[in-house]
Design a protein around this nucleic acid. Structure first.
Lengths: 206, 206
DNA sequence: CAATAAAGTGAATATAGGTTCATATTATTG
DNA sequence: CAATAATATGAACCTATATTCACTTTATTG
């Protein structure tokens, strides 16, 4: 007997796992999923390609993690806006806040947000994106349900409406976020956000 | 001097071009863009792979044609619903008709419609899809503009609203159309269409 | 240090599918 | 039929990455 993983090595393992994930996110943020190759990640993290496979089973898993990490914080923010601690706000107000947060963060995040929301990616990554969108739809759906209970919103299928809102958000943001699109500030960001918010609010209202 | 293309050969050329395009559409309708390979098309049309390249410069061009052919009829139908000869209908009514037609045809077309609207595809094909969605957005945008002029609709950015509608349509139809989704009839198709229509109409209304 | 196990390496391998091209076939006309 | 040109063929080629694996390096403990 002569070897056993110790806390130090475990820590190193965790650190490297994180550094690989960070590297992957950095690649996507800089050049999109199009540039997310195993060797690009390896280079960015200054390790060999084989090392990546010691930490991620395969590319699909790596993509999943990038989405999870990238969207995790985003989804959290939207969730927080939709269901704040302070329970005094109306559902209408909260829906508006949630949409605004989503759009603002997407517009601020630029390349990375575009990659998550709309960059043409290969089918494996696209499958991950569908899950990511689903998480948003869940938030909106719950909020709409509550709004119906409180009779703030018209009676409707909350799942359908939630999907429609996510679709509307994604599609309207594709243009402004797309490659070659005017940089943030070139167009009136506030106007865009107001437009989307108004569109969605009117749609759910009584 | 001893050879010159004749009407007969030209006709054959046109026929073969069509048969290749039909083959490509058939492949997509059956198994999606995922299965659209040059050799699949060649097999389906009973020609050699090289022959495909006599008629289509490369795969991207072939994809473009599949989208054009596949969506051409769809876009036409929506256009016809949005701008009918009979000018007596209100914009509201026409918008409702256009949305209904879009959804109905997508739901009826099933696999092919799913492929056009939402199937995860590789970036080359996705780029074509964006153009296709743009065509729809153009129709809705014009209609909304007219509706504002006639004071049927609230003042709004017609381009933004049109994008939102296209996004809402695509996203809400993805689920029902997706692979493994219940076959048409399993869910209440009419209810779905009504839901989307209501959502969009309320959103544009004064 | 010796023994052992894990982590790291990166060249080699595997695959898939788009694209090419030398060759064969077919059509047209004098 | 001979000459010519267009069309068709499909095996071979190319490219781009994901993935593997024999080997090296590093960490741990008696």
């Amino acid at each position: 007997m002569a070897y056993r993983p110790t806390e130090k090595t475990e820590a190193h393992k965790r650190a490297r796992n994180k550094s690989l994930l960070d590297a992957a996110i950095k690649v996507v943020a800089k050049e999109g999923f199009q540039a997310l190759t195993i060797s690009a990640v390896a280079d960015e993290a200054s390790v060999a390609t084989g090392t990546v496979y010691k930490y991620f089973e395969n590319k699909a898993h790596l993509c999943t993690e990038v989405f999870r990490a990238g969207s995790g914080r985003e989804v959290e923010q939207v969730q927080a806006a939709a269901f704040p601690k302070d329970r005094s706000k109306s559902c209408r107000e909260r829906l508006s806040d949630a949409i605004t947060i989503f759009a603002q963060r997407a517009l601020a995040g630029h390349r990375f947000a575009y990659a998550l929301i709309a960059e043409p990616v290969d089918p494996m990554v696209e499958a991950e994106r569908l899950k990511y969108r689903h998480a948003y739809a869940g938030i909106f759906s719950s909020l709409i349900e509550e709004g119906m209970d409180r009779q703030e919103f018209a009676l409707q299928d909350p799942v359908l409406t939630a999907a429609a809102i996510v679709g509307a958000l994604a599609e309207t943001l594709v243009g402004p976020l797309g490659i070659g699109a005017p940089a943030s500030g070139q167009f009136n960001e506030q106007q865009l956000i107001d437009g989307i918010t108004t569109f969605c609010l009117k749609a759910v209202q009584k």
